[in-house]
């Protein structure tokens, strides 16, 4: 029989620390496999002022509305404190939950009216386990590289990535997260403009 399932509720700060260590540990081989260049070389190549273009919109990516599904662990998170989703919710195959507890078991394609009712958007889900897109713990440079990397971003080229960031309905939910939830901290127009500026400059990544 089962014994140890202590789902640990740790502070966000300690998660960041753990996540950072974890991300460093596994991001190296991934980065090495994907580019002829070593991680150091990538960092060196991106070490330009253009990195600021990414930094200009990264607070949106780092906001709990995005991070709660791009976080460490095989489960979604909730709230501005990023606590693990109650009810032992799991990522599952394809990122749509497991067996009788799919995301769509509770989440609709739209937000429900009323505080604490399940939020929703079309195709509500987590990144799949094969490509979990975990951002938590990454530096800006790592985050930038990871979202650009087709092996980590579901095979999107930069144009498709920009479209995803600026038009995808699930991403757009971050600006309209429903009653009682903090929206992402930048107007959508401004965010889209900044993403496109970054795209126009060749999607440069910060040095670190």
């Amino acid at each position: 029989m089962k014994r140890v399932y202590a789902v640990v509720r740790v502070s966000l700060a300690s998660l960041m620390v753990l996540g950072f260590a974890g991300a460093l540990w596994f991001s190296r081989p991934v980065a090495a496999a994907e580019q002829p260049a070593s991680p150091n070389k990538i960092a060196a190549a991106a070490a330009s002022d253009d990195g600021d273009l990414f930094a200009a919109f990264v607070p949106v990516l780092r906001h709990p509305r995005c991070m709660n599904c791009h976080s460490q662990g095989d489960f979604p998170r909730q709230g501005d404190d990023g606590h693990p989703h109650t009810m032992n919710i799991r990522r599952g195959l394809g990122g749509f939950g497991v067996t009788s507890v799919k995301c769509s078991t509770c989440h609709q394609d739209h937000n429900l009216g009323g505080a604490h009712l399940p939020p929703g958007a079309p195709s509500w889900h987590l990144p799949p386990p094969s490509m979990p897109m975990i951002w938590q713990g990454l530096t800006d440079a790592q985050l930038c590289e990871s979202i650009k990397d087709p092996k980590q971003n579901r095979n999107r080229n930069i144009d498709q990535l920009v479209e995803h960031l600026t038009e995808d309905k699930l991403v757009m939910w971050g600006w309209n997260p429903g009653e009682g939830r903090t929206p992402v901290p930048m107007p959508h127009d401004e965010f889209a403009a900044k993403v496109k500026q970054w795209q126009a400059a060749g999607a440069p990544c910060p040095a670190r």
Binding site: M1, K2, Y5, M87, N88, R90, V98, T99, S100, V101, T105, C106
Partner: peptide, 23 residues
């Protein structure tokens, strides 16, 4: 809930049950 669990996992483990039935 159990019906969907059994359909998807005909021989569920205790962990499968914990994940499927916690809601």
């Amino acid at each position: 809930s159990a019906a969907v669990l059994l359909r998807d996992k005909p021989t569920p483990t205790d962990e499968d049950i914990d994940q499927a039935m916690t809601g």
